[in-house]
């Protein structure tokens, strides 16, 4: 059954990715990207990484892509104009990209000593063995300091963004009238 699910969602993922490139309207491309990300989440789930799957859906499909679609809607971006592109890119470019990716992935698999993945292997409701438990153990025990430092880094970035974007710190418009905060 896991294999059937894998084939279906890998198919969705590839179809979404190809559709993403072929569509000329930006909003269709954005929606195809959502399909790709959601199917990837199902593939993660099949590999036994249920937390990663849920995080992928909540963060990527639910939050980041909403911003993408927002931008597309607000800017009312028009259709993309197709240029034919160079013939060399078509005939040499695509095969070489595939070749480079294949070589890279082979090297990474060999160097890391990774074996064959079994679908649905780590999926269990047993709290001691589940992926959820192991991820939280790593995040909050073994890598606690890097994890917290990263979150503070992100917090600082957010504060910086708010400080720069805050209307209290700049002049807006030509009349030079200062708009105060509140």
């Amino acid at each position: 059954m896991h294999l059937i699910l894998f084939i279906i969602f890998a198919g969705f993922c590839l179809a979404g990715a190809i559709n993403l490139l072929l569509q000329t309207h930006p909003i269709n491309s954005a929606l195809s990207l959502i399909v790709v990300m959601t199917s990837l989440a199902v593939l993660y789930l099949l590999l036994g990484a249920e937390f990663l799957a849920a995080a992928q859906i909540i963060v990527y499909s639910g939050a980041i892509m909403v911003l993408f679609t927002f931008v597309v809607m607000l800017l009312n971006a028009g259709r993309e104009e197709r240029t034919l592109g160079s013939r060399a890119a078509l005939s040499v470019g695509f095969p070489s990209v595939v070749a480079i990716l294949a070589v890279l992935s082979t090297i990474i698999i060999r160097a890391q000593g990774l074996g064959v993945a079994r679908l649905g292997e780590g999926l269990t409701n047993d709290p001691e063995k589940s992926n959820m438990f192991q991820v939280s153990r790593v995040l909050f025990h073994e890598l606690l300091l890097p994890f917290e430092v990263t979150s503070i880094l992100i917090l600082i970035a957010i504060l910086g963004a708010v400080a720069i974007a805050s209307p209290g710190h700049g002049y807006t418009g030509d009349d030079g009238e200062r708009i105060s905060h509140k």
Binding site: L31, I34, T38, E50, F51, A53, A54, A55, I57, I58, S61, G62, A63, V66, T69, F70, M73, T124, N125, P127, S130, M132
Partner: peptide, 22 residues
């Protein structure tokens, strides 16, 4: 019965935004 039930609900809620936005 899934061990990430709560996250599944939150994830589906976050996808539901698209219906309204689109």
């Amino acid at each position: 019965n899934v061990n990430i039930g709560l996250l599944v609900i939150l994830g589906i809620t976050s996808i539901g935004v698209y219906g309204i936005a689109l």
